[in-house]
Structure formats: C-alpha cells, structure tokens
Design a protein around this nucleic acid. Structure first.
Lengths: 205, 205
DNA sequence: GGATCTTCTTGAACAACGTTCAATTTTTCG
DNA sequence: CGAAAAATTGAACGTTGTTCAAGAAGATCC
C-alpha cells in the first residue's frame, strides 16, 4: 500500500505543479489534459486515476493560489503590528498587497475566481477554510475601527470590504467590463477605504 | 440587396432571442450551436453566416442584458427626484435594484460578467457605451454628496462604488467563493454606502 | 423572361477536446 | 514465487465549435 499511494501522491503533486505552470503561462481555458500528460510524462488516462476531473485538478491549483494570497496578506499583517494606532493604513496595505498579487499572478487568480465549476460540485473543505482565513486578516485592523461592534458584524463587514476591493480590482483587470482604469485602482482603493473608515468614526445622524 | 439583408437581420434577431432564452434557462456554458439551429429552424452553418462566432452572438445577448440593467437603474433614478436631499437613499435604491436584477436574471448576468471571451476580442462600441451609461446613474446622486469634487474624480468614484457593490453581489451569488451570505447582501450594501457617504461628509484628518 | 453571375444555405465532415475502458504491465503480499 | 489486485496505457468514444464543397436561391442585365 505504500509504494503505490506514494507514487500516486507524487504524480498528483507533479500534475498540480505542471497545471499551475501552464495556467500561469496561458490561462486556465488553455489547459489541456494531453499537454499535461506530456509535461509530466504519463498517459492521459493516468490523470484520471489520480483526479476525478480536470476541475478537481484545477481546484488543487486554486487551493495553492489561495494559500499564496494568504501568505502575502499574512506578511502585511505581521508588518502592521507597528501600526496599531493607524488601522486604516494596514487595511490599505492589505488591499495593495492583494492588488499586487493579482497583477503578478493574473492567470492563476483568474483560475481561482473565474473558472466556473459544475454547479453541483462540492467545494473541498480546505478551500473553504482558506477563504475564511483571508477574511480574518481584514478583521484584525477593522476591529480597531469598530470597537463596539459584535464579532458577527465585524466578520460580515470584513467580508464586505474584501468583496468591495475584489470587485474594484476585478472590473479593472478584466477588459470585458470597463471599470476603473488600472492606473486608478490604488488611488481609488485608498480613497474608498479612508472614506469608509472616516464614516465609521462619524456617528450616524 | 434588400431581401437578403432583411432576412439576415431577422435571423440574427431570432438567434439572439433564442440564445437569450437558452442562457436564461440553463446558463451560458450549456449553450450549443446545434440546439440554437434547431430552435430557430435553420442549419448550424447559417449561424456562422450571420455571426463570426458564438461569442459574438453571446455578446449581443449581453448587450441586451446591459440595456435591461440600464432600464432598471433609470427607473430608480426617475423615482429618486423626490429624494434630492437624501442622495444616499438613491444610491442604496440603485444598489438594491441591481441586486434584485441579479437575483432574477442570474444566468444572463453571469453570461455578461463571467463568460470569458478570447483575450484579443474587440469589445463592440455599443457595449462599452452602455457600460458607461450604467455608471452615470450613480454619478447623479453621488455628485450631491461630493459637491466640490471635479468631474473626473466623480466619474472615478462612481465606477469604484459600482465595482464595490458588484463585488459584494458577485462573491455572495457565486457559491465558489464564500462571500457575504445572500441574506446579508442588502444590509451590507446599506451599511457600506451609508458609512462611505458619512465619511464623505466628515473632513479628512 | 431567361441566362448568368453572385450570394446564401446546407449538413456532412473536420479537428480538438474531456473522458472512458479493455488490455497489459506492475505492485502487493501470503 | 505466484496469484490477486491495482495501476497504466493509448486507442477509441461522444461532444463540441467551426468549416466547406455542393446545391439552391437571388440579383442583374439583355
């Protein structure tokens, strides 16, 4: 049981690496099972012995992408301990880091968010867990801006802010919808976040 | 030249209608050339005499979707003249109208934003024009909140707000990324917009 | 109106894709 | 070692979007 499962695992890892390289180079919709087989030196059928689907393989690549994003944001969070009195700056730094990641890994990022999987696909638990980890990076500085808010609301607002920044970046990077121009993304994220946090300070009227 | 071009135009319109119906019913990635041909009673080849591509056909459907969204937002804008002293309410109403449209026309909306067209595809001018029209609906109430801002900034912020709301809706409607839960979308859009506008009022410090 | 040229329409054929599967090879384990 | 189990193979299958030679229909001129 050891030799085979070991090789299975090794093949799976090799396939994920090859798929990641191909996706990064030419986008997820140019990924071909036959190319992958040739890349790693196995037959097309072997892929299906290790993965149910090409979608399952792509999902593994996306899990890695999620973890990379998490690493990037965690690094910003670590830097930010010095900035505890200015949580907005941390939030802006997080947004900028995310934007930079998208620019440097556009195709992998697209595979993560754009690639539509069959509607009945069960999202693996690790993927869902990793997604929630992302939001948590925002919760920390946000909590310093919303000290009286309950945990639940904090979590929801963190998700909202991530979604908002994500939307801004998406519509500017994808040319099919003319959002904010790429040059304007950072200034706009900056303005959006600063204004929002300023609004948190001002009492409702 | 008249009989043929007339028939061409009629066929094109019929095909777009059929495609819209199919997309609305089962999503853009289940659209098949052969099904369409059967729907409208022509051969598969005839489709390619009228459209370069299935993508070109889908783009025509999406142009219609854009116009429908525009109509929805225009209706809200017309309602909102009574509310000139409370521009935030108009902005929230616009966001809610957009969200409602997405919920009622999810598949058409997905075709508009998710369907990835070849990277070198030239976006038809009417599509681009219609997109800009959307942003303009937001500019009107926004200008009442940013009276001293130059036209250019106003336009950029309007795009940003649309993108932000769009991101919120996208990540909650698409199950592949667990954003804000569908139930929480309206409250969160409400909170986001109110807080942002409140921040516009408070001077920067 | 008919002959001729052009243009459109057709649906079988093509190439490319994800996926499967019977045959073959390799691994496992008593 | 030898039999059972599992994995590997690559040819083959079923579906795609798209093309194209052949035939049908329209336009144009006398």
């Amino acid at each position: 049981m050891s030799k085979t499962t070991e090789r299975r695992a090794k093949l799976a890892a090799t396939l994920v690496d090859a798929a990641r390289a191909r996706i990064a180079a030419s986008g997820v919709h140019h990924l071909r099972a036959r190319d992958l087989a040739q890349d790693v030196g196995c037959s097309v059928g072997a892929i299906y012995n290790v993965f149910d689907d090409l979608d399952a393989l792509i999902l593994q690549v996306s899990l890695g992408t999620l973890r990379d994003i998490d690493k990037t944001m965690a690094a910003v969070g670590a830097q930010a301990v010095q900035n505890e009195d200015k949580p907005v700056e941390t939030m802006i730094a997080l947004a900028n880091a995310y934007f930079q990641f998208v620019q440097e890994n556009t195709n992998l990022w697209r595979a993560l968010f754009d690639h539509d999987i069959p509607e009945d696909y069960v999202l693996p638990e690790p993927v869902r867990a990793e997604q929630n980890a992302l939001f948590r990076h925002i919760e920390k500085p946000l909590s310093l801006c919303m000290r009286s808010a309950p945990e639940e609301q904090l979590s929801a607002v963190a998700k909202s802010l991530f979604s908002a920044v994500h939307g801004l970046i998406t519509l500017s990077v994808e040319q099919r919808i003319a959002g904010v121009s790429v040059k304007e993304v950072k200034p706009q994220m900056d303005f959006l976040l600063r204004t929002f946090v300023a609004g948190l300070g001002a009492e409702k009227e």
